[in-house]
Simulated scan of single mutants.
Amino acid sequence: MRFHKFFASFAMSAIVTAALVVAAPTASAAAKYCYYDITVQSGQCFYRHQALQDYRAAQAGYDYIHVVNWVNFNTGGGVQIIGGATRCTLAIDNEGKKLPNLTTLRYLLPNGQAGETLDNSISSVKTYNTCVVQFFEGLNYTGAQSPWMGSTADTSVYDFYDRATSLDIT
């Protein structure tokens, strides 16, 4: 009888311990809610989507696009807002709203190290303030290119699911 109580107590302790270990936060969780200002070529990342929204509400400038590395705007994969100081225009222009190398935009890890890049990871895009975006498969606007597009829940509609390496916004 005593053995059974000990074994039952040990088994219950192991179950509780396992649950605590699984529930504990991991050190590799990324600060995956980011804003990048094309005008000043600088960005900031946050651990919570609400913190990103609060940051944007306090900043001057315009949001151009939100890119998400998950289809249907699911934020499980991370969100990158790209914006700047000037408004988008309805005409195709060269006002400096270009990103020639998406490998330089990275989500940050808690230890400050760079994590995953935006290169080949954009699955959804939402445009704002009359902006449209065009993706390119290669660096510096080379290779296959998407048509100019507005918001789309799934970039595979344009055959550009997780293929963008550079982009142009107008």
Rank of each mutant, 00 (worst) to 15 (best):
A24H: 07
R106W: 01
L105N: 00
G84W: 02
P100I: 00
E95R: 14
N94M: 05
N111W: 00
E95W: 15
A58M: 11
Q53R: 08
L52C: 05
G83A: 04
A31R: 14
E95H: 08
K5Q: 14
C34V: 00
L90E: 13
A29H: 10
Y35T: 00
A58H: 11
D54E: 03
L20A: 08
V67Q: 04
Y62I: 11
N74Y: 08
I81V: 15
I82K: 07
L52V: 00
C88K: 02
I38E: 04
V68Q: 10
A58W: 04
Q44K: 09
F46D: 03
V16N: 11
V16Y: 12
R87G: 03
N111F: 00
Q53Y: 11
I92R: 15
Q44T: 12
G61P: 05
Y33W: 01
N111R: 03
P25A: 03
S9K: 08
R87S: 12
T89Y: 10
A23N: 08
A58T: 08
Q50F: 13
N74R: 07
T86M: 09
Q50E: 07
G43T: 00
S28C: 04
A11N: 15
L90K: 05
V22S: 07
G76A: 12
Q41E: 09
Q80S: 12
G78L: 02
V40I: 15
T89F: 02
Y47W: 12
F10D: 10
W70E: 15
V40S: 05
Y107Q: 02
V68T: 10
V79T: 10
I15V: 06
A51R: 07
P110N: 05
D37N: 14
Y62E: 09
K5E: 06
R48A: 13
N74H: 07
H66N: 10
L90Q: 10
M12K: 14
T104W: 00
T86N: 10
V16G: 10
N69H: 09
A23E: 07
L90G: 13
I92G: 07
A29C: 06
L118H: 11
F10M: 15
H66K: 09
A57G: 11
T39C: 00
T89C: 08
G76D: 09
E116D: 13
N111L: 02
V40G: 01
F73D: 15
K97N: 01
V67N: 01
R2M: 11
K32A: 03
A11E: 09
